[in-house]
Design a protein around this nucleic acid. Sequence first.
DNA 1: AGTTCCATCAAGGTTATACCTGAGCCCTTT
DNA 2: AAAGGGCTCAGGTATAACCTTGATGGAACT
Lengths: 225, 225
Amino acid sequence: MKANGTKVAQKRILLVDDHPLLRQGIAQLINQQADLMVCGEADDAQKAVTAIETTKPDLVVLDISLKGSSGIELLKNVKVRFPQLSILMLSMHDETVFAQRALRAGASGYIMKQESTDKILGALRKVINGEVYVSDRLGARMLTQLVGGKVMAPSSPIEELSDRELEVFSLIGQGHGTRPIAEKLHLSVKTVESHRAHIKEKLHLNSAAELVHHAIQWVQSESIG
Amino acid sequence: MKANGTKVAQKRILLVDDHPLLRQGIAQLINQQADLMVCGEADDAQKAVTAIETTKPDLVVLDISLKGSSGIELLKNVKVRFPQLSILMLSMHDETVFAQRALRAGASGYIMKQESTDKILGALRKVINGEVYVSDRLGARMLTQLVGGKVMAPSSPIEELSDRELEVFSLIGQGHGTRPIAEKLHLSVKTVESHRAHIKEKLHLNSAAELVHHAIQWVQSESIG
DNA sequence: AGTTCCATCAAGGTTATACCTGAGCCCTTT
DNA sequence: AAAGGGCTCAGGTATAACCTTGATGGAACT
């Protein structure tokens, strides 16, 4: 069966990531498999939607940090338009902050770029078969949360932030002011101010200076650690 | 000449990155070239040093954000032990923040993972030939800083700040707002505003957000070393 | 000694941002 | 149907940022 070359019905995978090197790496990994193939690539949100419509993939591998809008936003949009489509989120960021909100937004799995190619292949196959993939560590943690009745003590109050709030928080940490953030996200300045206020409440911060300070620290710890 | 297969002396490249997918991507890119080859891979600082000793690469491609210690720390250590070795820093982060730091620490180039494979190949070849690679945008910016500054190259425009300005800059970087700074230094708020304006001029910054961003960055780099 | 330069300090006035209250809409949960 | 949370935005006031202007005193050139 396996030896039958391309006659086996291969699962079609669309790659969405703005790092050409990484796309090349995962594309090679996938195309080496008899049962998988890359049907297309995209490096931003618009191209991703177009590519889904034209290539009809069985699975989308989606980077959580795209240029322009965040991967989570794209994930939500795609899920609205193509509810049946399976999506595996790929990220270099800490799973404790991003994985659960990715799953809540409709992803079928979350895996970090730091994982071995074996594990990534395993995640791909699991998601294609309709299952949900998360790391063992995160899976255990989520079980504990369920059994524990309510929500576990969040390891960081940053997990309390909503998706939009986290997006704003991240942009603040990258050094952007309120106005540029509003423009980038196509929102009213008033809305961004509102998000900032909520972030300050949730993180128990008292001033704009403190907010910027913590945001920059967090962005830095995310990128270096 | 080119047609002589592997008889041409290929340049040996060591990859240091903790993302297997990305290593696979860049390895494939390099090994497709007749004049380049991957001589080894490493995913943390220790293995990187060992690999340099055993494989004697002509060039090291080094991710700036490694697990454990940061890539910049590793860069400094490697430069102490192997001063002749060329190093191209690879990063997914904004070059305006990290590139100059990397070059000062001894790197021969800095390129972002978002760049096309063509540009990455170009950077690899440029660094192997003993030249320095930075993006066109960053190169122009650095030139402007040199020309716009004084005759000599200030290693950092921060050295242009007066004592008082540096004091204010440092307090901004510690997360204090204008009012608290004025109180702490027994000055009028207006005076602190004036200092802030002069700092912004000297560092070529355009907004308060940028100022705070750079100030925090600087304070952090000072405390880390 | 005079001129120039600039660091330091500061005011007035304009614009932008921060902060507070409130509110409509949508979705999910109950 | 009701309740809660998330997302969006507005009005109004307080505060901070920003621009211009300018006084003072020290350093440096010439």
